[in-house]
Amino acid sequence: MMDQDEHHTGHSRRHVLECMVWAGTGVLWTVNGGVPQSRLLGGTAHAAETGAFSFLQISDSHIGFAKDPNLDTPGTLREAMALVGQRKHEAALLIHTGDVSQLSKEAQFDTADQIIREAGLQTHYVPGEHDVLVDDGKGFFARFTPGAPRGWYSFDQQGVHFIALNNVQDLKAGGLGSLGPDQLEWLKRDLADRAASTPIVVFAHVPLWTVSAEWGWGTQDAEEALSYLRRFGSVTVLNGHIHQVMQKVEGTLAFHTARSTAFPQPAPGTAASPGPIKDLPPGKLRGMLGIAAITRVQTATPLAIVDTPLGA
């Protein structure tokens, strides 16, 4: 996945990954010939290729959380947005993959909204479970997904079809994240007439692949959703929730989770619970927070050809 870095910088994969952690910046994603690739985002990152389509992802800002290891979540969100601002000229949009707030409070939503708005970048949100704690999430939907009162929607941007999903409501005892039959039916219809060559980006809060069943890091009915997506040549699935970068490639589906802007969580099985990592050494917090950038490269590789059938 890091081949491009190696070619451009001569760094080994290990060295690049170490730099990424140390710099605390994030990952640049390239959807190249249908295969997403990650690379360093930060001081040594190279300029975007001509004709590339980029967008940015932030996640899990948890405004309202003020305990170890982060007493200032608005401050770290501002730092994340400063990174977003540096890439603003090459990014078409920003997505936030949920847990904007800690406790679904209007003041928490408002603080996040104000900080994120300052970048002046079109922003698309999905809810996290922390955002729908009261009144069935109406406060979140009214502010962050106007026109999508249940938190799922789709849109097109420069030939890429974006699908925002809500997998944090009506969860069942003993289960994982859930999309539910209404949303699955909507998704099926949304995809029905699309050409298989259309690049798809799906974003939702809880991972759509099971990272850890024991910690509830997965989505109960994700397989049904993925079954509608498998015929497409390039599907990039972006999630948050687990406050760390994890990746998986399964055929034409590439899964990626983003860092939080608030606090890190442990890798599955390495701690008693998925709660915040509290005992970070001094100065180490920012290395575990960050943002992600995703780029679709349209040059230097075979062009993506979008065929559109006249009828279904």
Partner: peptide, 12 residues
């Protein structure tokens, strides 16, 4: 009476 956490439904 079985109950759970609606944020983390694996908590039973």
């Amino acid at each position: 009476f079985r109950y759970f956490c609606s944020l983390h439904p694996h908590m039973l």
